[in-house]
Design a protein around this nucleic acid. Structure first.
Lengths: 204, 204
DNA sequence: ATCCGTACCATACATTTGTATGGTATATGC
DNA sequence: GCATATACCATACAAATGTATGGTACGGAT
C-alpha cells in the first residue's frame, strides 16, 4: 500500500468497519485487508486490534470468525425491525410472511420484541399520528392506562390510547370525529405498545 | 434431538436466525446446531439450505463464514446521521462538534447530506410535528413552495412550511396561535428540507 | 408391503479465517 | 547517531467453519 500518515488509515478502517457492522455484515480480517489493499492480513489485524485497544471496537472472545462488534457504549445498537404489511388475528409470528421491509431502530433490548406497522386512518391525528405514519411497537399483551397501544379490533390492528376507568376499558381515538371503543366486560387484545412514530415525507 | 413434526423445527430455525440477522449477528452453522441441540452440524445445515431453497434466506456465495442473510435486508443501506444539539449560523460542518448522537437512517444517497434536529416549540403541531420530535433534514439551500424546511431565523433554526406568493416569501407555522414570518425583500436562509419526522415515546 | 420423503445422526475433509512470528521502511525524539 | 514507534509485508499454522458422504428411524402414500 505504501506508507500513510499516522492514524489516517486507522480512521478510515474504523469508518469502514463501523458502516459494515451497522449494516449487519461483520467483516473478516481478510475482507478488511482487501478493502484497503493491504497485502497482508496482519496489517488489517493490527488496525483492528488497535481499535479494540482504543475501545472503539469490541471483539468476541476466542478467535471466532467475523468477531468484531461495535461497543454497546456508543449509543444503542442498531437493529432492523420488520415492517409488517398487515396484522392477522392469529399469533404475530405468522405475519412475518408478508413484510414490506425492515427499519433500522436503536434498541437496548432484544430486537425480536419489536415490529413496525403502517397507520391507517385519521383517528389519532390529535396525538400527532397521521395516516401513512409508521409506528414501531414493542410486543406486549398488557399495557398501562394512558399508553399508546396497538390492539386487535375484529380482524384489524388499530392504534389507540388505552383508557381504564374502574371496570371499564376503552380504546380511545384522539380525534373528535371518532368514537371510543368500549369493553364493558372482557378486554381488548393488545398486541403491543407504541414506542416510536415515524413519518417519511420524501423518498431518500 | 428426537424427531419433531414436519416443518416445525424448520420454522423455529427460521425465527431464530432471523432475529440473529436482524440484530446484526449472523450465526455459523454450528451455532445453529448448538442453539437447537442438534448433534450434527449437518442437521442445522439441512434446515438452513432448505430455507434458502424456499427463498426465505439468502446465502453469500462460496462457503463464506456466517454467510446467511435476509433477502430484503440488502435493500436500502443503513447509515448513521448526526443528531445536532444546536444549529449555528455558520456552516453546518462546524456544528458536528456538539452532537447528541447518531440516528440510523435508510438512504439511497450519500448519507453526508443528512442531519437531524430536535424540534422546539409548538408551531407545527398542525402538521403532526410536536415539541421534542426529531426531524431528519437533507441539506439544501433552495426548496419548493409547500416544502417543510428548516430555516435560520435570527440565530435559531426553525421548522416551517415554505410559502411563496409572487415576490413575497413566507415561513408559515401550522398552528393558528403562531404568526407567519414574512420576507418582503430578501429571502430566508434555508438549511434544508425535512425528509422524515420521528417521535420517541419511550426509552427502548 | 414397498416406496418415498422428512428429520436427524456420525464422521471426515477442505476452505476460510484468526493468529503468530519475523521482517522492511520511514518518521520522530533524545 | 541511536532508540523507538508506526505502517506495512511475507509466510506459516491452528482453529473455526462450511461441506460432503453415508447412515438410522419414522410416517404417509400407493
Amino acid at each position: 500500500m505504501g506508507r500513510t500518515p499516522p492514524g489516517r488509515t486507522r480512521e478510515r478502517v474504523y469508518r469502514w468497519i463501523r458502516d459494515r457492522l451497522l449494516a449487519g455484515l461483520p467483516p473478516t480480517v481478510r475482507e478488511v485487508q482487501h478493502a484497503f489493499g493491504f497485502r497482508s492480513p496482519q496489517t488489517a489485524r493490527e488496525h483492528l486490534e488497535a481499535l479494540v485497544e482504543e475501545g472503539r471496537l469490541e471483539k468476541e472472545a476466542g478467535g471466532k470468525a467475523r468477531g468484531y462488534r461495535l461497543p454497546q457504549a456508543s449509543g444503542a445498537p442498531t437493529a432492523l425491525v420488520p415492517l409488517l404489511g398487515r396484522v392477522p388475528a392469529g399469533p404475530l409470528e405468522t405475519a412475518v410472511e408478508d413484510l414490506e421491509g425492515y427499519l433500522p431502530v436503536q434498541s437496548r433490548h432484544a430486537p425480536g420484541g419489536l415490529f413496525a406497522l403502517r397507520v391507517v386512518g385519521e383517528s389519532m391525528t390529535g396525538a400527532g399520528i397521521l395516516p401513512g405514519d409508521i409506528v414501531i411497537v414493542r410486543r406486549q399483551e398488557r399495557a398501562d392506562p394512558g399508553d399508546l397501544v396497538v390492539a386487535l379490533v375484529g380482524d384489524e390492528a388499530t392504534v389507540k390510547r388505552l383508557w381504564v376507568e374502574g371496570r371499564r376499558v376503552e380504546l380511545r381515538p384522539e380525534n373528535p370525529a371518532f368514537e371510543p371503543i368500549r369493553f364493558d366486560r372482557g378486554e381488548p387484545r393488545i398486541l403491543g405498545k407504541v414506542v416510536e412514530v415515524r413519518r417519511r415525507l420524501e423518498e431518500r
